[in-house]
Design a binder for these strands. Structure first.
Lengths: 219, 219
DNA sequence: ATATTGAATATTGGATCCAATCTGGTTTAT
DNA sequence: ATAAACCAGATTGGATCCAATATTCAATAT
């Protein structure tokens, strides 16, 4: 008798677990900019040795989420206002292309799911959840696209400014404006208007950039 | 007596040396697609232990240059024709923006250097050097741009298709056409015409993509 | 002959130990 | 008092060793 193939979900390696946990902690702002990542301390936290921690850190460095100096260790990477602006410009270039590719591939089910997430975002009351709900909505729409490298770029770019996005959402009008723009993007998707969805996505990102930069004085 | 601060050029760590060497070997095609990277073998090659090798491999994985499977190791990543096409589309989106940003920042010296490299490319006779000379020309122009994240994206994208670019250059007309287009781009830069330089860069990339895809049957 | 089992080998993932470098406070010379 | 020299702890980079898993191939059963 033959058994089903079962796929034991491949319990991730320690280095991957540490990598994901640190990445999450960084983009959610639980670890502040400039805060040093002590290998020993992290290893104890995860009940492992420093080896998988070092692998995780080197991957985070490759993603630009931490900076390391030889014999001095890694610190959470911060962004200058100029760098933040550049990341938003990159997003404003790439993400409209993703959604343009995605629109003709969106199923009824996906659009229904997106509508739910759009509503969940607009009715959210816990500021801690704003960031996740926002990202959840956008990624749902993007997931219909087959442009996986574009999505990699967008994911990484969003990672790098996730903290600023969260800050922007709790600013006055942040949630209200984002919610309105989300509905507009969603509607364009439902109407199959890829060009409009693309344009609204670009406006959404550039609006967030402008709103954010107003609050960042120095350079 | 005090010594000059001397900056011993920070003799890179072993893991960085291995990372750079492997990256170079992969993008130059010395390691073929699907070829497994044996930690032990690489460690012996560089007279180190497997620890820095593993760090190097995890960084290469993060860059998409290798794929790894748990307990099975890493293999050099290959690209399907569809993936190759997507990378070229990404380049065609990002690199025109880089050169648009770069043109108004190009000094006389930089333009002279670019002209030399353009000529060096056109008069090259060694097919082994085509790839380096091509990249050298483009990176010289791009280096005037202040968009460092855009450049990161472009660098990584070029890394991933470097082998195909080299193949395309040795194909009939490859060098001749590229050389002609390089001169066009350079001229636009010298004339300070950022829009034209941007457009020609996009055409250059899309032309390379088209020429390449004609030779890739399956998907 | 073919397919399955199982042991030997190869290879990766991780832990522990050592060496190299950094950091901070203390000492010492002027 | 100030600044250079220096010593001790902290921290990172790397080597060696062990455990977990994969792969290969011979032995066996059908």
């Amino acid at each position: 008798m033959k058994l089903k193939s079962m796929d034991i979900s491949a319990t991730a390696s320690a280095s991957t677990i540490v990598f994901n946990a640190l990445r999450k902690a960084i983009i959610e702002g639980q670890l502040e900019e400039g805060e040093p990542l002590r290998q020993d301390e992290i290893a104890r936290l995860f009940n492992t040795s420093r080896i998988p921690v070092r692998e995780a850190i080197s991957r985070l460095q490759e993603q630009g989420l931490v900076r390391t100096q030889r014999y001095k260790g890694a610190v959470v990477a911060g962004l200058s206002p100029k760098e933040t602006a550049e990341i938003f410009d990159l997003r404003a270039l790439v993400e409209p292309e993703i959604i343009r590719d995605a629109v003709p591939r969106m199923s009824k089910e996906l659009l229904a799911e997106a509508r739910e997430k759009c509503a969940a975002f607009s009715s959210a009351t816990d500021p801690m959840a704003y960031g996740d709900l926002n990202r959840d909505f956008h990624e749902t729409l993007y997931s219909a696209s087959e442009l996986k490298f574009f999505q990699e770029i967008a994911d990484n770019a969003i990672d790098r400014v996730e903290r600023q996005i969260r800050a922007q959402l709790v600013m006055s009008n942040g949630m209200e404006r984002a919610g309105r723009e989300h509905f507009g993007i969603l509607e364009a998707c439902e109407n199959g208007d890829a060009d409009l969805a693309s344009k609204l996505t670009r406006d959404h990102i550039q609006g967030a950039k402008a709103s954010l930069l107003k609050h960042l004085k120095q350079d």
